[in-house]
Lab assay of single mutants.
Amino acid sequence: ADDEVAKLLVDAYRKNDEDKLEEVKKRYNISDEQVKRLIRKVL
């Protein structure tokens, strides 16, 4: 599931889509710190 979330985050990140990032964060209840970590893992 982590990889799936990471893909969604990276996708939103690449598109610079703040709304999507927020949506994913809320849906999976993850912190900014986790977001950064997941994005770093993929990029």
Rank of each mutant, 00 (worst) to 15 (best):
Glu18Asn: 15
Arg37Tyr: 12
Ser31Ile: 02
Tyr13Cys: 08
Arg37Met: 13
Arg14Ser: 09
Lys7Leu: 11
Gln34Cys: 12
Asp2Lys: 08
Asp2Ala: 10
Ser31Lys: 03
Ile39Glu: 01
Glu4Pro: 08
Ala6Pro: 03
Asp2His: 12
Glu23Arg: 06
Glu22Ser: 08
Asn16Gln: 10
Ala6Asn: 06
Arg14Thr: 10
Asp11Ile: 06
Asn29Leu: 04
Val35Thr: 06
Arg40Val: 10
Asp2Glu: 12
Lys20Ser: 08
Arg40Pro: 02
Tyr13Met: 08
Ile39Ala: 02
Lys15Gly: 08
Ala1Gly: 11
Glu23Ala: 10
Leu21Ile: 14
Ala1Phe: 15
Asp3Ile: 11
Arg27Asp: 03
Glu33Trp: 05
Lys20Trp: 10
Arg14Trp: 13
Glu33Asn: 06
Asn16Ser: 07
Leu9Met: 02
Lys36Arg: 13
Lys36Val: 11
Ala6Val: 14
Ala12Lys: 00
Ala6Ile: 15
Ile39Ser: 00
Leu21Tyr: 04
Val24Arg: 00
Asp11His: 06
Val24Pro: 00
Ala12Asn: 01
Leu9Asp: 00
Leu9Gly: 01
Lys7Tyr: 11
Ser31Val: 02
Ala1Arg: 10
Gln34Arg: 05
Leu38Gly: 01
Glu23Val: 05
Arg27Gln: 11
Tyr28Cys: 03
Ile39Met: 05
Lys15Gln: 13
Ala12Trp: 04
Lys26Glu: 06
Arg27Ser: 05
Asp11Gln: 06
Arg40Trp: 15
Asp2Gly: 09
Asp11Met: 06
Ala6Lys: 07
Val35Arg: 01
Val24His: 03
Tyr13Glu: 01
Asp32Phe: 04
Lys36Asp: 12
Val35Leu: 13
Tyr28Met: 02
Arg40Asn: 14
Val5Tyr: 06
Asp3Ser: 10
Asn29Pro: 00
Ile30Gly: 00
Lys26Pro: 00
Leu43Cys: 10
Asn29Ala: 06
Asp19Ser: 13
Lys25Gln: 07
Lys26Thr: 09
Val10Trp: 15
Lys7Arg: 13
Leu21Lys: 02
Arg27Pro: 00
Tyr13Ile: 13
Leu8Asn: 02
Glu22Trp: 08
Arg14His: 08
Lys25Tyr: 02
Ile30Met: 13
Val42Glu: 10
Leu9His: 00
Asn29Glu: 05
Asp19Pro: 06
Tyr13Ala: 03
Lys25Asn: 00
Ser31Asn: 09
Leu38Ser: 02
Gln34Glu: 15
Leu21Trp: 04
Glu33Ile: 06
Asn29Asp: 06
Glu18Val: 15
Glu23Cys: 08
Lys15Ala: 14
Leu21Val: 08
Glu23Gly: 04
Glu22Ile: 09
Lys15Asn: 14
Glu22Gly: 05
Asn16Lys: 11
Ile39Trp: 03
Glu4Arg: 09
Glu4Cys: 11
Lys41Met: 12
Glu22Lys: 10
Leu8Met: 11
Glu22Tyr: 07
Tyr13Asp: 02
Asp19Gly: 12
Asp3Cys: 06
Asp32Trp: 15
Leu9Thr: 01
Leu9Trp: 03
Asp3Leu: 11
Val10Glu: 06
Arg37Pro: 02
Lys7Gln: 12
Gln34Ser: 06
Asp17Ile: 03
Val5Met: 08
Arg37Lys: 13
Leu21Pro: 00
Arg40Ser: 14
Arg40Thr: 12
Glu18Lys: 15
Asp17Lys: 04
Lys15Glu: 12
Leu8Gln: 10
Lys7Trp: 15
Val5Ser: 03
Val5Cys: 05
Lys20Gln: 10
Ala12Gly: 02
Arg40Glu: 15
Ser31Phe: 02
Val10Cys: 10
Ala6Thr: 12
Arg14Gly: 05
Asp11Pro: 00
Arg37His: 12
Lys41Thr: 09
Ala6Phe: 11
Ala1Glu: 12
Lys7Cys: 12
Val42Met: 14
Asn29Met: 06
Lys36His: 11
Lys25Glu: 00
Glu23Met: 09
Glu18Ala: 15
Asp17Asn: 06
Lys25Leu: 03
Arg27Thr: 09
Arg27Tyr: 08
Tyr13Gln: 02
Lys20Leu: 14
Val42Gly: 08
Glu18Asp: 11
Asp11Phe: 03
Arg14Tyr: 13
Lys15His: 12
Leu38Arg: 01
Val24Met: 10
Ile30Asp: 00
Arg40Cys: 12
Lys26Met: 09
Lys26Asp: 04
Arg40Phe: 15
Val10Ser: 05
Leu38Phe: 05
Ile39Cys: 04
Lys36Ile: 13
Glu23Thr: 05
Glu4Val: 11
Val5Glu: 02
Glu22Asn: 13
Val42Asp: 04
Asp17Tyr: 04
Glu22Met: 10
Asp11Val: 04
Arg14Pro: 01
Leu43Ser: 05
Asp3Met: 12
Leu9Val: 09
Leu9Asn: 00
Ala6Trp: 14
Leu9Phe: 04
Ala12Pro: 01
Leu38Gln: 02
Val24Ala: 03
Lys36Leu: 13
Leu21Ser: 01
Leu43Pro: 03
Lys41Val: 08
Asn16Tyr: 06
Leu21Gly: 01
Leu8Glu: 08
Asp3Ala: 11
Leu38Thr: 04
Asn16Ile: 03
Asp32His: 05
Asp11Lys: 04
Val35Asp: 01
Arg37Asp: 14
Tyr13Val: 07
Leu38Glu: 02
Arg27Asn: 06
Val42Cys: 07
Asp11Asn: 06
Val35Ile: 09
Gln34Thr: 11
Lys41Asp: 12
Lys7Ile: 10
Tyr28His: 05
Asp2Leu: 14
Glu4Asp: 11
Asp19Arg: 14
Gln34Gly: 05
Asn16Gly: 15
Ala12Thr: 02
Lys26Ala: 08
Asp17Arg: 05
Arg27Leu: 13
Lys20Ile: 08
Val35Tyr: 11
Lys20His: 05
Tyr28Ile: 01
Ile30Phe: 08
Glu33Arg: 06
Val5His: 03
Glu18Thr: 15
Glu4Lys: 09
Lys26Asn: 09
Ile39Asn: 00
Ala1Leu: 15
Lys20Met: 14
Leu9Ala: 02
Glu33Lys: 07
Val42Asn: 08
Glu4Gln: 09
Ile39Pro: 01
Arg40Asp: 15
Gln34Asp: 14
Arg37Leu: 13
Asp19Phe: 12
Leu8Pro: 01
